[in-house]
């Protein structure tokens, strides 16, 4: 008898915890809907095609162990000042995501808005060499591919591993000897005089990174009212840190 009592008591407690902390909140969150962006479309858009496949590769390579994809609220950090986003991310931003992959530890820059990040806001700032928008997109893609191929080329202190296995064999005479026939976006990347052919996973990952754009204005996440306030605050924190450090 006591046996059944124990099982029922423990089962009830665990079920109560599951109901109160999981089922009710998840049910409430399911009421959220995408909003109209005024051009006949909706925000957030569902990721399809290459970007969706890129999310799978992002997961399988374990990128989220170092990169987060979550802009913190202004009062909780300095993500805004670091140029990682212009507003905090809220539940609506992730409505279309079947894989959240927030990340756990920030050992690398946040990627929540990498698709919209300005070159000067990268860890190692850079500049577009052209004003043409299409060329700028190409340069942005090349930058991301170069980081994937060998991050140390851009930042010698980087702890990011090289993802050379995502690139086909390269030769110095600019004639690649391995070309994937079903590559959806055949490209070559010239790095230090060598030509590299990114494979499908590399292209998909770049597509996924480009699709990370969460700056659409939402009423539940207004932009910071007074940017100078944050600059003042971070300066104060810096002063405190400097006085504490030996």
């Amino acid at each position: 008898m006591r046996y059944f009592q124990t099982i029922i008591l423990v089962g009830l407690i665990l079920s109560a915890s599951l109901y109160l902390l999981v089922l009710i909140p998840v049910n409430r969150l399911s009421d959220l809907k995408p909003i109209s962006d005024g051009t006949g479309g909706f925000y957030p858009n569902e990721r399809l095609g290459a970007a969706l496949k890129g999310a799978q590769f992002y997961r399988s390579l374990g990128c989220y162990y170092c990169h987060t994809r979550l802009v913190k609220p202004y009062e909780f950090g300095t993500d805004y000042e670091r140029g990682w986003g212009i507003r905090r991310l809220v539940a609506r931003d992730f409505l279309a995501d079947s894989l959240i992959l927030f990340g756990y530890i920030r050992l690398a820059p946040d990627l929540a808005n990498i698709g919209l990040r300005k070159p000067e806001k990268f860890s190692i700032p850079w500049k577009y060499s052209s004003t043409n928008q299409t060329e700028q997109i190409g340069q942005f893609e090349n930058r991301l591919l170069t980081i994937l191929y060998n991050p140390k080329l851009l930042n010698p202190k980087s702890i990011m591993p090289s993802f050379r296995f995502l690139f086909n064999d390269y030769v110095t005479n600019a004639q690649p000897f391995v070309v994937a026939s079903d590559n959806p976006m055949p490209k070559t990347l010239s790095i230090n005089g060598q030509t590299v052919i990114p494979t499908e996973p590399a292209i998909y990952i770049v597509e996924y990174l480009k699709s990370m754009k969460s700056e659409y204005p939402l009423f539940e996440a207004p932009p910071p009212p007074d940017p100078s306030r944050f600059i003042r605050r971070t300066t104060e924190i810096t002063n405190v840190l400097q006085s504490v450090s030996p």
Partner: peptide, 25 residues
């Protein structure tokens, strides 16, 4: 019993994009 009842709570950091009441609860 305390661990069984309240063991599932916590762990949600303030920046996680969930409604405030879920975080506060």
């Amino acid at each position: 019993l305390g661990l069984l009842l309240f063991g599932g709570t916590g762990g949600i950091s303030p920046s996680i994009p969930v409604p405030r009441w879920i975080f506060e609860l």
